[in-house]
Computed example of a mutant assay.
Amino acid sequence: MENDNDFIFQKIQGADTVELNPNHLLTLLKVIREKSVTRAAELLNLGQPAISARLRQLNMAVGEPLYRRKGHEVVLTPAGEGLMVFAVALEENMKKAEGYIRRLRGLSAGTLRIGATVTASNYYIPLSLVEFQKKFPGIRISVETAPTYELFRRMSDLDLGFVEDPIEEEVPETFQVKRWWKDQIVLIYWKDHPKADRWKNGVMLEELIDYPIIWREPESGVRKTIEREIEKKGLRFKLCFEVSGADAVKEAVRAKMGIGFVARRVLEHSNSDLLFSQINPPHGVEWWINIIEPNDKMKSRATQALVDLCLKMSNRISETSEQKTKNQSLKNAIGKTA
């Protein structure tokens, strides 16, 4: 009895299943347009037996005749005419797909999904994205902001990630971390701060214990990096004010609520009412923005193009920033001598 049921199920399953080969459908379309199996075989670079075999298999898949011969020509049956509507649509979509693939190869189509921390999104990646869009206007860019831990969790849905030091999360299996933008964390304070003259050439962390600090949110890479430096020195700082984002730190310092820590890049276009100093001179507190990118075998052309552009951009800006720092140091030294 069990075998009988299996047989009935297979018959029903066979009746509902259509094994349709798209190439067979496109072959019939070519034969009908050329009105000749011989001519269609030449255009498709196939032998006539191969064309006939495709047509025969297509007939079997449908279950009734799709064409008939009229003299030397091949003409459609009503069933074949109905099927040709889908054959034409299939041909058009295949052409569109081929064109899309060609544009992808030429970096003129597609979407790049990028995840970044707020600091990376606001201060580090915009110039690179602008240059990329100028170079490849056909590629759409989508940027989502989230904390580092959240970005690592969502990398399977993203093409690239831009995250801050320190990296405490496990890197997803198909991704790798590339150090990208080397920066320094600096102390910021208002222009007429009582210690402005003393701090202008640098300040050690232990000198700041008694001053109110404007802290970033706990998941901030800048905050975590400074906290590690404090821990290394065995220091203890008070938590006076806590705000979200580098801009909020700048505004709180501008309001003279306290001093704060930000990445040097964050001050690139700030007003001159805020001053900054290197922490723990002469080496400072080094800090990186990192790129989470797919492993080489998984990387698209568009992803690789953006990574290459980002690297060039950071090198160019870093060189300019270093020159500015040297000029400022020289200016300070001359002023001190005078």
Score class of each variant (00 low, 15 high):
Glu98His: 11
Lys135Met: 11
Phe132Lys: 00
Tyr149Asp: 09
Ser108Pro: 07
Glu131Cys: 08
Arg153Tyr: 06
Leu104Cys: 13
Ser142Ala: 10
Ser121Glu: 12
Val88Pro: 00
Leu90Asn: 06
Leu127Ile: 09
Tyr149Pro: 04
Gly110Pro: 05
Lys96Thr: 10
Val85Asn: 08
Val88Leu: 06
Thr119Lys: 02
Glu92Cys: 07
Gly80Ser: 03
Val143Met: 10
Gly138Ser: 10
Tyr149Asn: 09
Lys95Phe: 11
Thr145Asn: 08
Asn122Ile: 04
Val130Lys: 13
Pro137Ser: 08
Ser128Trp: 03
Ala146Tyr: 03
Gly115Lys: 00
Glu81Ser: 06
Pro126Asn: 11
Met94Arg: 15
Val118Thr: 14
Pro147Ser: 07
Tyr149Ser: 09
Gly110His: 08
Thr111Leu: 06
Val143Gly: 05
Leu83Trp: 01
Ala97Cys: 07
Glu81Phe: 03
Tyr123Gly: 01
Ala116Phe: 02
Leu127His: 10
Leu83Asn: 00
Ile125His: 00
Asn122Val: 08
Gln133Val: 05
Thr117Arg: 07
Val85Glu: 08
Gly82Arg: 04
Gly80Val: 04
Val85Arg: 10
Gly82Thr: 02
Phe152His: 03
Ala79Leu: 11
Leu104Val: 11
Ala146Ser: 12
Phe86Leu: 15
Ile101Asn: 07
Ser128Leu: 09
Arg140Trp: 09
Ala146Lys: 06
Val88Glu: 14
Ala116Cys: 15
